[in-house]
Nucleic acid binder design. Structure first.
Lengths: 172, 172
DNA sequence: TGGAAACATTTTAGGCTTAAAACAATTTCG
DNA sequence: CGAAATTGTTTTAAGCCTAAAATGTTTCCA
């Protein structure tokens, strides 16, 4: 199978207009591989959280955000950080308040804003889960050398920047 | 901030028993970055598919699997390839048969098995979407050099293998 | 000052997703 | 052969998720 040679340079100004369907199979394969890795790891983490702590991944993720913010966060902040819709956060928070993991109150200075925090129970449970969670992640990435890890970090940072730029271009 | 030096070797047999809480912050950060990239790109693709073709990402993904299999696939095959649960595929297929994009029949040789294919309509619509989709992906990854792409592919292959090994260890 | 714009959140409607249990058909093997 | 295990799919119950519309609040500025 011949590797797709990446000849993206325009040979002359005419070429541009001719709607040459360029070959981007490599990028497509990269995207699918990225997705596979994430899905694989996410599924594994989801299963372990359920088995070991009977907690869902979204609940864990939300608690993780709050653990980093002792003074609490607004729902909007959470929504942006977790990269999920506002309505999604509303329901998630509802259930976590119900189960006693979260505390929620209306801001004194702005009555539109809801501030949420971990309760003592929520924080204790999260810390307990987080310790094991970190070990799971370490194990899942165990075959990567420190150099691999650094290199992946670098390339993913570049990927993130590229994707954000592209997303920005579209919204513009 | 001192980089965490990765000293995973056991210095002596005693060390193992002492429950040293090892530092795996780097791997954790790597996982979060991986997740961020995927979520970012996935969200972008989801939005474009909806806006441009009024189709959901899962529907598109399922059609993509079938486009590669002219003779059809069983629901199990699809479920494994897409890395989603069986029940999920059942519902997805139901809706795509309903909308005329998929054809479904029971296997002649094994009455447990359902074989699904793209209909003519389904294939035509998918091809139309796939062409644009590939361009979107290319744009999202546009700032990566060909070398970056190759290197990412390599490192993600290694990551996938590592995660699969770890998942296997757990199931064992 | 008063209305328009912006903002934070919730609601709505529909679809996606999972884990586990149930069901049906086939294969295995005593 | 026939019971037990396996395999493929569907069902169930619950929760997750999104986009878009609705609601309430604050800010901006003419």
């Amino acid at each position: 199978m011949p590797a797709a040679s990446d000849c993206t340079q325009m040979l002359d100004s005419e070429t541009k207009a001719v709607e040459t369907p360029e070959d981007h199979a490599e990028e497509l394969r990269l995207w699918l591989r990225l997705l596979t890795c994430t899905t694989l790891i996410e599924g594994e983490v989801r299963g372990r959280l359920r088995q070991r702590f009977d907690v869902t991944l979204p609940r864990f993720d939300l608690m993780a955000q709050l653990d980093k913010a002792p003074d609490g966060m607004t729902l909007s902040d959470v929504s942006k950080r977790m990269m999920v819709s506002n309505g999604n956060v509303t329901g998630l928070v509802e259930r976590l308040v119900e189960s006693g993991h979260l505390d929620r109150r209306t801001s004194d200075t702005d009555r539109r804003v809801q501030v949420i925090r971990l309760t003592k129970l929520g924080r204790a449970e999260f810390r307990r889960m987080a310790a094991e969670h970190e070990a799971w992640i370490a194990d899942l990435f165990a075959d990567l050398s420190p150099k691999d890890v650094r290199e992946l970090m670098r390339l993913l940072a570049k990927t993130k920047a590229s994707a954000q730029k592209s997303a920005g271009r579209r919204r513009a």
